[in-house]
Design a protein around this nucleic acid. Structure first.
Lengths: 207, 207
DNA sequence: GCTTGTTGATTAAATATTCAGTCAACGCGG
DNA sequence: CCGCGTTGACTGAATATTTAATCAACAAGC
């Protein structure tokens, strides 16, 4: 079923919760792990319970339903991306753009397992508006980060005078496409894809 | 849950099966309709049975399991895209590329509901290699169609001398990203995205 | 001793799958 | 042609299993 080689999943706990890890957080992490292991359509409360040190029934002490738990997890993940993204970006506009491209275009194996989980959650938005809302917002936020970087670069004179919003929209779409394709297909196209994107940036954005 | 306005689903039956519509085909269509209505994770045999004129239990006369049925449906859909795509393309290379871009970038509402179903199936590939195989192959096929069109255009002198495989890879990735994003988010970015893609083609591909 | 967290067992509903039996069509020997 | 056995499509109900959710009881800290 799964083609990943290493079993280790990025430790969401340490990423998402600095310090105070209560039961609620343990549950969220268990849900994330179970989601990663079984996929959304096979995700059961039992499976979440298996990833959870304490009793499965304790989940219902903290959440009213499985649904509510998953929506909470989704909120946590999107919020994480929105707040942490600007914190880890380098200072120089060009480095910042490179980092976005790197993240989108050059996924390593560890990232890919996490991104796969994220993609599966996103796919739920096709039929569930509560999911859709989260991604509408997170797309806006991420895209605005990119647009800001482009504007900074233009201001600093290292980028050409492009339409920042337009290029940010496009870059984000390419990122989503690359991520989706890479977790649902093989590797054969990745390098070629990256070449074209970088070539595009050289011609059109960088001075 | 759903933001589509019109209830009509594209008539798979008439699209996929010309003439001889046996029970097996009716089941496949029912599965497609149910998938469209409920989404993959909420898809039950009962729901498929509801879209199916005959008895629900008859499904098991034709298929060993729900799983087998869905894999069969997937095969049918990918095969459809692979064989029909070249048949409906115009003659001129530039028109052909335009049609690909149109399909990827300018999704109307009817298309979007069908694409949503397709995207949900594709998302299963994250955890199921049987799904993955289908998309690896169909990506290759579609991408090769695009590459061929580009080569034709270069030969005919209407396109610049670009690396056809590289641009085809990139175009297909953009198509996947646009499709995925459009069925899991809102509309606000669509036009901007299209502008950038068309601008890119004008600069980089068209003479 | 009251609140909060925790547990294992239990329930009720949902869901996939099976089954016993009907029916219509078909082939074929008389 | 006429009975008759065979076959495959089909049905409604039954079954087996999975799964979400509940509950009564226990423990610990305050």
């Amino acid at each position: 079923m799964d083609r990943k080689t290493a079993e280790e999943v990025p430790d969401l706990k340490s990423l998402l919760f600095d310090g105070d890890v209560g039961t609620r957080e343990e549950i969220l992490e268990a849900a994330f792990d179970a989601l990663h292991e079984h996929g959304y359509s096979e995700l059961t409360i039992d499976a979440i319970g298996d990833e959870f040190e304490k009793s499965q029934s304790l989940i219902y002490h903290h959440y009213d339903s499985k649904d509510e738990l998953l929506i909470d997890l989704l909120g946590l993940l999107t919020e994480y991306f929105e707040t942490r993204t600007p914190e880890i970006l380098p200072a120089e506009p060009r480095d910042r753009i490179e980092m976005f491209v790197e993240a989108a275009v050059g996924l390593n194996d560890t990232d890919r397992t996490a991104i796969g989980t994220f993609i599966e959650l996103r796919a739920q938005a096709v039929h569930d508006d509560r999911y859709r809302e989260h991604f509408v917002r997170s797309d806006e936020v991420i895209q605005e980060y990119i647009a800001d970087d482009i504007r900074d670069g233009i201001e600093a004179g290292v980028f050409q005078e492009v339409d920042a919003d337009r290029m940010a929209t496009w870059l984000h779409t390419v990122g989503i496409g690359t991520a989706f394709r890479s977790v649902t297909s093989d590797d054969s196209w990745i390098e070629t894809n990256e070449e074209e994107v970088r070539d595009y940036l050289e011609r059109r954005l960088y001075k």
